[in-house]
């Protein structure tokens, strides 16, 4: 799966497809419009102030034009030299969400891989956006469970991460940065 920043074209394709998916899966198209509106505002009005820049990313399956998940990221300038990249939310497409709720094994696999790509992609985006700390938010139970297990795995594997939990946040920094 690919983790790519959304542009106007990708946003419009996502809005069109996701509202259709909501409609055919007994969901609410206007709810999808409301959930995606922040991306339109972001693309129209800019990224916000310099200390809190929002970014919209999509998780795409190979060759797809519409993402299976949309991610909201924020770059926060903590101090002059310290920048955080926060993954605030991973929103699954209405089709994947409906199938996951129905217990569809393929959809569950897609959702898990989308969460994986969101975490991995956010980590890579740190380099592009010059951030030294990654904060991942466990917005729902699935994401929180993944982050909690990831923390235990990182701590038990003797990795080069300084990993800790702050409420529903998983905070990742390189040990070399903290020393």
């Amino acid at each position: 799966m690919q983790f790519e920043q959304l542009n106007q074209q990708a946003y419009e394709a996502t809005l069109k497809r996701w509202t259709w998916e909501a409609d055919v899966n007994d969901g609410f198209p206007h709810e999808v419009e409301r959930k995606l509106r922040w991306i339109d505002e972001l693309l129209s009005n800019g990224k916000g102030d310099a200390n809190n820049q929002s970014l919209a990313y999509g998780v795409f399956t190979e060759g797809a034009e519409v993402p299976v998940a949309v991610c909201e990221l924020v770059i926060s300038r903590k101090t002059v030299s310290e920048r955080w990249l926060k993954l605030l939310s991973v929103m699954l497409s209405p089709e994947v969400e409906a199938k996951v709720e129905a217990g569809d094994v393929d959809a569950i696999q897609t959702a898990v891989m989308a969460y994986r790509a969101a975490v991995s992609g956010s980590f890579n985006a740190q380099l592009e956006h010059n951030a030294d700390t990654l904060k991942l938010y466990g917005r729902n139970e699935a994401m929180l469970k993944l982050l909690t297990t990831l923390l235990a795995t990182l701590q038990s594997s003797g990795s080069d991460f300084d990993a800790k939990k702050e409420g529903r946040w998983l905070v990742l920094r390189s040990i070399s940065t903290t020393n």
Binding site: T149, T153, S159, L172
Partner: peptide, 16 residues
């Protein structure tokens, strides 16, 4: 670090 993160992610997903 990315390689370590991917390995930890896969292990976590497997455990869950």
């Amino acid at each position: 670090l990315h390689a370590q993160l991917l390995a930890a992610l896969d292990k976590a997903i497997n455990e869950i």
